[in-house]
Amino acid sequence: MKPTTDLDFGERFYLREAVKGMGVIARHFWKNLLGFRDPNAEIMQRKGPGVNMVSTMNYPEERKAYPPGYRGMHRLVPRIDGKPRCVACYMCATACPAQCIYIEAGEYDDQAIEKYPVRFEIDELRCIVCGFCVEACPKDAIRMDTGTHAPAVLSRPLAVFDKEALLQGPAVEHPSDLMTYRVPLRTPSADPTAGPTSRGDVKDH
């Protein structure tokens, strides 16, 4: 390819090229002015009589939904009984390059799963939306499929979302959950005064 050829007379004369340019712009102009506005957010699929494909969107009246795989705001996935699937394994906090996940673990006294997050907080301001937490979770307990982004806030502490705020959306079950839901055998403890098996137990679940 040789891009640099000298301009011929017509080109040097401005006018020819100017008219050509006007042509391009006029096409866009008429399309935008008269084109039938199809509010379909998917611009490429806009249909309509006459000229379609007006490529702008009247935000905020028209909004484009985030695509299905889009990494949006986090949510903690509930089990069918409404409790978080999360078992406070800290994998997400470990994988997170922004170190924005804070977890404190506690113990269920009556369930095979034993461990759950007493506190689970995500600082959405620190989050870089990389999705590594979702990838790292071995329980499918954290997802970014809310289809929305972290909302704007008026002060930094408000960007820290706690467990209650994050626990939302449809419950999820996996066939492999059966294994963790079974009732464990428990032999009577040798120490009747045993109490909880971990220190600092929180029983308010």
Binding site: E114, A190, D191, T197
Partner: peptide
């Protein structure tokens, strides 16, 4: 197949589970 079930979280003593 399913795995064998055995006791979990058995308190052995003041420090050990």
């Amino acid at each position: 197949t399913y795995k064998l079930n055995k006791p979990k979280r058995e308190v052995f003593g003041p420090l050990v589970v």
